[in-house]
Design a protein around this nucleic acid. Sequence first.
DNA 1: GTGGGAAATTGACCTATGTTAAGAAGATAA
DNA 2: TTATCTTCTTAACATAGGTCAATTTCCCAC
Lengths: 204, 204
Amino acid sequence: MDRTLSEEAYSKHLNEARKLLYDYLPLTDEQWEVFKQGFKIRKYHKGDFILNEGETERFLSIVLAGCTRHYVMVKGEEKSFDFSFQHEFNCSYSSFIQQEPSRFFIQALEDCVLASIHHDFLQQLYQHYPESNKFGRTAVEQYYIWREQREISLMTDSAQERYLRLMQKYPIYLEQVPLKYLASYLNIKPESLSRIRKKLFEER
Amino acid sequence: MDRTLSEEAYSKHLNEARKLLYDYLPLTDEQWEVFKQGFKIRKYHKGDFILNEGETERFLSIVLAGCTRHYVMVKGEEKSFDFSFQHEFNCSYSSFIQQEPSRFFIQALEDCVLASIHHDFLQQLYQHYPESNKFGRTAVEQYYIWREQREISLMTDSAQERYLRLMQKYPIYLEQVPLKYLASYLNIKPESLSRIRKKLFEER
DNA sequence: GTGGGAAATTGACCTATGTTAAGAAGATAA
DNA sequence: TTATCTTCTTAACATAGGTCAATTTCCCAC
């Protein structure tokens, strides 16, 4: 992790984070002065592990630059569970919520800059400023909806449908995620994804 | 819906709800007097629809008695997504959170008694008593964790493993849920569940 | 209790995706 | 630039689970 940021760069990152948070948590300048104490800017290189399985997630982060991959290791195989792209949250939520060891690895798919709030800071915030619970509530709510949609898709769509739907609604996945991870995210093998892509290509 | 409850029975139900909520929201007697205004006791018969697809979920409920099934209708087929058993929450969460039409049907698997808080009441509560956001936050957090586990299971376990794990951890499913719904919940056809059960039976 | 309809089981066959293995295409480092 | 390693593709074959159809078993209403 590179902490050799100039004061100026650091402050710029923080302001960006504030803007991105605004929907969840519109803070006055005064409130922000408190809030920003809890933030930490963290930088990672492509391939770095932001969180390892078994570690407890201490941070709820916003991706200021780059993107990350979340995966579980099951029976010797990596299963991609989620990605966080620029301006999205990045967190091993279950671990963060329960402050228990994470089942997930989180890895930088590209060089990354994260603005991260520490769990304990957030808890203090919840206590001292009860209205900040709204922030935590809304963040989980949004993430919950995302997961529900994905679960329905896993249950009801064929692999090809999942692929098409993802490409159509979120082309960023195809742009930023290597196919082998994408296959895993779609819950199929790379060979199957290749077959699907070939078929779709030939059909048009 | 049967609203012909005696004052006494009604009040008994409400107290039960208060007890069940305690983990999420320990209220003083005084606070409870406010809170309980927002509750409604609702009764359903087996087979009744508690929520229809396309309706907006107005209630976050606690199941005081009975159990419910949540399902989506996709390509003419019912896909069981979740069940709520006694003392658990029952809600079409995404719909409730967003106050948009639900993709889910919720149906009473048995005769049911629900203690339900109205969405608008909860919102007022959030506003007037910011600390009550914690209640909403914790409830979604718990449900989030549940969904995450299930998603991982759908991605990584074979149908047989899903069946075994569910039976072992939550035998209540086998006790209270007809096999055709259970199959759907495990994301397989009833015929496949039969085969799995037969195989397991023969192996022992 | 009994008769009809729904739920569960069984078997034969089918299909989407997994598996294995090989080669082609891309990336990365020296 | 070349050499090497990883990712992606293709093909042949294997398998878990789906489909269809025929019983059997279980409910529940009468």
